[in-house]
Simulated assay, not measured.
Amino acid sequence: MRKKNITLIVLILIFITATYYMFFVKDSKEGGQKNDVVMENNFEEEKSKEKKETDSKVKAPIAIGNEVPNFTLKNLDGKEISLEDYRGKKVLINFWGTWCVFCDIEMPDIQKLDKENEDIVVLAVNVMEGKETVKKYITDGGYEFEVALDEKGIVARTYLVSGYPTSYFVDEEGILVQMVPGMMTYDQMNKVVEHMGNK
């Protein structure tokens, strides 16, 4: 009788253990696998999202063949001028400063280009200097091209200017054709303008 009771208890324990395994441990494992798959998918989605965001941040706003950003600044007469005002014309955007030795050397050639070449308009963007300082420099030099005042340096930063002078040659549709960091001669400028005409 006692042996029967022990056997019965053992069988009950085996049954309970088997039932517990079937309903709890197995489900838990399957759920865990499902959760692992979901977590892996979420991780891949996040990774893909991060890559897209990174790619969009890495893309430079200024690149040859791309449209350059428009900007609006005041000229020496206090009138607002925009790059879009020159749409339909080739434009040389020249970032410069009155204190810059190489800008000073380059200025007469920019004046010559502006005066002798009807195919291009010069827009000289002075960076972070006072209006009176710039006006005196332009008047004393006898320069006649359009000057715009980037008083806070925002346009220069947008255009990724890292040194002065820096020149951007933009075609009639606002597309960047050439970017030249550093001083240029008249002949160098003219070659770029001729290249723009032969596109």
Results as ranks from 00 to 15, higher is better:
Cys103Val: 08
Gly97Glu: 12
Glu146Ile: 13
Thr139Arg: 12
Thr98Arg: 01
Leu123Ile: 15
Thr98Glu: 00
Ile120Ala: 09
Val134Trp: 00
Trp99Ser: 06
Ile175Val: 15
Trp99Phe: 12
Met128Glu: 13
Ile175Phe: 10
Asp114Gly: 12
Gln111Cys: 04
Lys136Trp: 03
Ile154Gly: 09
Val101Asn: 10
Tyr159Cys: 01
Glu118Lys: 15
Pro108His: 08
Phe145Trp: 10
Tyr159Ala: 05
Cys103Asn: 07
Glu118Asn: 13
Thr158Tyr: 11
Lys135Phe: 11
Thr185Trp: 04
Gly142Glu: 06
Val125Thr: 05
Ile154Asp: 14
Val170Glu: 10
Ile105Gln: 13
Ile138Ser: 06
Thr98Met: 01
Phe145Gly: 07
Gly174Ile: 03
Thr98Gly: 00
Leu149Tyr: 01
Ile175Ser: 08
Trp99Pro: 01
Glu146Cys: 08
Thr98Trp: 02
Glu132Phe: 05
Met128Lys: 13
Glu129Ser: 03
Asn126Tyr: 00
Gly163Trp: 07
Trp99Val: 01
Lys135Asp: 14
Gly153Glu: 04
Gly163Gln: 12
Met107Thr: 13
Ala156Pro: 04
Ala148Ile: 10
Thr185Lys: 06
Tyr168Phe: 15
Thr158Pro: 02
Pro181Ile: 08
Ala156Thr: 02
Ala148Val: 15
Val121Ser: 14
Asp150Cys: 01
Pro165Cys: 07
Lys131Trp: 02
Ile175Thr: 13
Arg157Gly: 10
Ser167Asp: 07
Ile154Glu: 15
Gly182Cys: 03
Lys115Val: 13
Ala148Thr: 11
Val155Glu: 03
Glu146Leu: 13
Lys136Thr: 11
Glu151Pro: 00
Ser162Glu: 12
Phe145Arg: 07
Asp140Tyr: 12
Trp96Thr: 04
Met179Leu: 10
Asp140His: 08
Gly174Thr: 00
Tyr137Phe: 15
Gly142Arg: 11
Asn117Thr: 11
Leu160Lys: 14
Gly153Leu: 02
Lys136Cys: 00
